[in-house]
């Protein structure tokens, strides 16, 4: 199984551990990743807020590059995934837009390859093959699966899971022996987009997510988005100061937990580079 791999900028910087753990897990599962040569920004944040055409063109260049690799594009980051899959859909529905974009990027683009979220790919793997990889089941670990706003919405674009009650990550965690908790904030906004401009709002949103997950009995949060992860992880101290709370809830990427289940070392998975140290929770698994 071979995929063109789009890591995106955060996986090379603040979310290096997502990249590390994705590569480690995929390699163990026999999923070959070929990073797109000379990839560029996916068009999220600044681009799609200012110019629609620019946001499609940026994503399209990556798609065109991936097309030369003759493999579907695999994207771990939720924001990147959202941009790439949206651009693909818009160009397939609007030939005029595609022609325009092709002129801008100066490359051929035929729309032959698909864009897949890593979650979706793992969900479609043969369950037996997955089960064979579990050497250290996450038995007893209560996880709150957090999907955030981009991964499953809008359903007409993403379409691989239910927009209101998503289940993909829950299923995956269950296969690895963890116990996903039922909670109501799976798809609530974490506020990351407002991180610098409206901090009080973000603090409240983060507080609500952490509080709901804690009340549901979660030992940790699992997420699939680099923005969500850093926002929920790095702000806990600030939240505790403002609200007088005492949250110490590790926020991990699903790939990190899968890696733990495969018996990998914390350092291999970048578990040592998170703000709230997840290692005590992991160690408690025995």
């Amino acid at each position: 199984m071979r995929y063109a791999y789009y890591s995106g900028c955060t996986l090379h910087a603040t979310a290096r551990e997502f990249d590390l753990s994705t590569r480690a897990v995929c390699s163990r599962l026999g999923i070959e990743l070929e990073e797109i040569p000379d990839w560029n920004c996916c068009g999220a944040t600044a681009a799609h807020a200012t110019s629609h055409l620019l946001s499609v063109a940026l994503a399209a260049r990556n798609l065109a590059l991936a097309e030369t690799q003759e493999a579907d594009l695999l994207v771990p980051c939720a924001a990147c995934y959202h941009r790439l899959v949206t651009a693909r859909k818009e160009m397939s529905e609007n030939p005029h837009l595609r022609e325009r974009v092709v002129r801008i990027i100066g490359r051929e683009y035929r729309g032959r390859i698909g864009v897949r979220s890593l979650l979706e790919v793992l969900d479609h793997l043969d369950p037996e093959r997955l089960a064979a990889g579990v050497v250290r089941p996450l038995r007893g670990l209560k996880v709150a699966c957090y999907y955030g706003c981009l991964l499953v919405r809008p359903p007409a674009v993403t379409g691989f899971d239910d927009p209101e009650q998503p289940q993909v990550m829950d299923r995956l965690m269950r296969q690895w022996g963890a116990e996903p908790v039922d909670w109501g904030y799976k798809t609530e906004c974490c506020g990351a987009g407002q991180g610098f401009s409206n901090e009080p709002v973000v603090l409240k949103l983060v507080r609500d997510i952490l509080a709901t997950a804690s009340r549901a009995g979660a030992d940790c949060l699992v997420c699939a988005c680099t923005l969500c992860q850093s926002n929920l992880d790095a702000r806990q101290g600030h939240v505790n100061r403002v609200y007088g709370s005492d949250f110490r809830l590790p926020v991990m990427y699903f790939t990190q937990l899968i890696g733990v289940g495969m018996g990998m070392e914390a350092r291999e998975l970048g578990l040592d580079s998170l703000f709230v140290d997840p290692r005590p929770v992991i160690r408690a698994l025995g």
């Binding site: 209101e164 039922d182 109501g184 904030y185 009340r215």
Partner: peptide, 8 residues
């Protein structure tokens, strides 16, 4: 109503 969820 945009959402109902169980919290405890």
């Amino acid at each position: 109503v945009s959402k109902i969820y169980q919290d405890g």
